[in-house]
Design a protein around this nucleic acid. Sequence first.
DNA 1: ACCTGAACACCGTTCAAGT
DNA 2: ACCTGAACACCGTTCAAGT
Lengths: 212, 212
Amino acid sequence: MPLERIVDAAISLVDEQGAEALSMRSLAKRLDSGTATLYRHFGSRAQLVDHVVDAVLGGIDLDGGAAAPSATWQQSCATAAHAMFDTLARHPNVATLLTERIPVGSNAMRQREFMINTLLAAGFDPALAARAYATLARYVLGFAIQIGASAGAESLPSPADAPPGRHPATAAVAAYLPVPLASEFGFGLDLILEGLTGLLARTADRSGRQAP
Amino acid sequence: MPLERIVDAAISLVDEQGAEALSMRSLAKRLDSGTATLYRHFGSRAQLVDHVVDAVLGGIDLDGGAAAPSATWQQSCATAAHAMFDTLARHPNVATLLTERIPVGSNAMRQREFMINTLLAAGFDPALAARAYATLARYVLGFAIQIGASAGAESLPSPADAPPGRHPATAAVAAYLPVPLASEFGFGLDLILEGLTGLLARTADRSGRQAP
DNA sequence: ACCTGAACACCGTTCAAGT
DNA sequence: ACCTGAACACCGTTCAAGT
């Protein structure tokens, strides 16, 4: 029983029936096998989930737009972040699994290397590059986790449910809520990258003034 | 059996033994009762979780610093966001429950009204206020969800685990990783608020030019 | 060597029966 | 009216026994 066959079956199961349908029993049945066989390949259900998540993250193509030589560092970061978000959005039920296990597979490591390399090349010093990467990664992950949740029900509670007169400000903007998650994601990502651009400029100014 | 007693017992159980220890059986046992009794108060475990989350969110004090008349809108938003994050950080295991249920209780609604009201008063038009609120709320929620995950294990995989020569950029900043989650949160929040400040200024410029 | 049925100790939810 | 034991249909994990 090749490991890849198990992982592929698990992804199909989650795509079709949701993250909560991925049990060792249901997966074993889909493979015409028993649960004990699965435990010959994975020490626990958590390890299986790690493989499922990393297999999906492997579908991200960094060598496309994100790594284009003509791209600015902001474009590279934005493209990489969107690629990860979009890939998980294509598997919303797999995204839900991110709440169980934070990615630790080799594809997640590849993503990390790409982003940190981009930031260092842009001129961020190592300490700031680490902070910038951490915030970006956490931002993407935080939104990705909520893809699954917002897929089923309305993402955030609809303002229509609010008591009539008690929430006037909410009522005033109710026509514009809820904002689609993908739109929120891009909006906030641009704000963060704009903030980082300002931060980098101030850092460069200071070191420029000190050195010569 | 008062409902408040059940919710308090559930919070204690989660605080002490983790989110996964909150089962209808374990909670019933702690209350010297049976599972069927709990179903007289909550239609499902999910409804119980909603009450637990909202009870914790009720501990957030918006009337303190966030609503101070002297505060700028950036300070009000930052204080409110930090208050929510800090409250959940004090109950890391409850924060994990946010992955199961997005907050829909009255305390979450109060938070929403406060933030939207702050943005409208700052001069954001309703459409932009809705987007800004949505992004901020999602940002806080995304980080809050990860509090529990980062409490147990190392938040993101330690760079020490990486293959030696294959990730040079990661190795170059390894000394600065992992960044503590609370620090990442504040860093990214400031970047977003800075970005919103620029956006508001540009909006005001344009409408100023058009009107007179 | 590789696989598996059956078992153990759990789940959420329901319902007839008790007080 | 309010509560509950017991049942139903599930879990993750393990292990002795099979091939």
